[in-house]
Design a protein around this nucleic acid. Structure first.
Lengths: 114, 114
DNA sequence: ACACTGTATGCGTATATACGCATATGCTTG
DNA sequence: CAAGCATATGCGTATATACGCATACAGTGT
């Protein structure tokens, strides 16, 4: 474990990597793809159907996700199967969803003030 | 707890909100600001100094973070103090950093193959 | 009221990137 | 090797947004 524990100084490079990871997750279409893959490995054509996107666009987003190390690629004949490669995605999404739900609840309360 | 547990169908609106949350975290300067605030509440001028950014730019990024509900604002005389308002940021960053470290380690291994 | 300090904002520019369209590449089968 | 299907890529355009500069706004002290 190199310099892991020490979260003190964040180098510009490390900061850029973290920012990049978040940027990859900042597109609805890519979130849709990840969500579809939560259920398990799927070929591109299935993802195109599920997400209702164009084949070209889906392919590009899948590349982006794979480049980021979030997805794994497996070729089988004509098809290419993608699957979640980075399990940290699950708790990550749960955290964000939970935070947003709480935010929403608080806003609702602010109006419901009796 | 409303419809929390059921992560099944993600509406376009929910997806957009999650994407937005990630987008807010996808700028190095904003991550720098969050990181600086991990130690506790700070006024804008302190953050300008720490991050070495221009006052205008820092102010704008702080607004973005506050708008997203991640930061809280507190005015005291001339100064405005910002602080972390959403504690989910901490585990979120830890998750991403941990994932990236693991990725880095794996890449290193791929080369060090004996 | 004036000057001064800390913070926010309007505007222009540069850069990134999502998407659509057409086309290329790769693999399989006749 | 020709045809056909699944996937990837080149290119142009539209949109978003980060940044710098100047300036506005707000609160404090003289």
């Amino acid at each position: 474990m190199a310099k892991a524990k020490n979260a003190r100084l964040m180098t510009d490079e490390a900061l850029a990597l973290v920012a990049r990871r978040f940027a990859v997750l900042s597109e609805p279409m890519r979130l849709r793809l990840l969500h579809a893959l939560f259920a398990g490995e799927k070929p591109v054509n299935a993802l195109v159907e599920i997400t209702q996107g164009t084949q070209a666009n889906v392919s590009r987003h899948l590349q982006t996700l794979a480049d980021a190390g979030l997805l794994a690629r497996r070729k089988e004949g004509l098809q290419v199967f993608y699957s979640i490669a980075d399990p940290s995605i699950f708790p990550l999404c749960e955290l964000v969803c939970g935070s947003l739900e709480k935010q929403h609840a608080q806003r609702a309360d602010a109006f419901a003030r009796r």
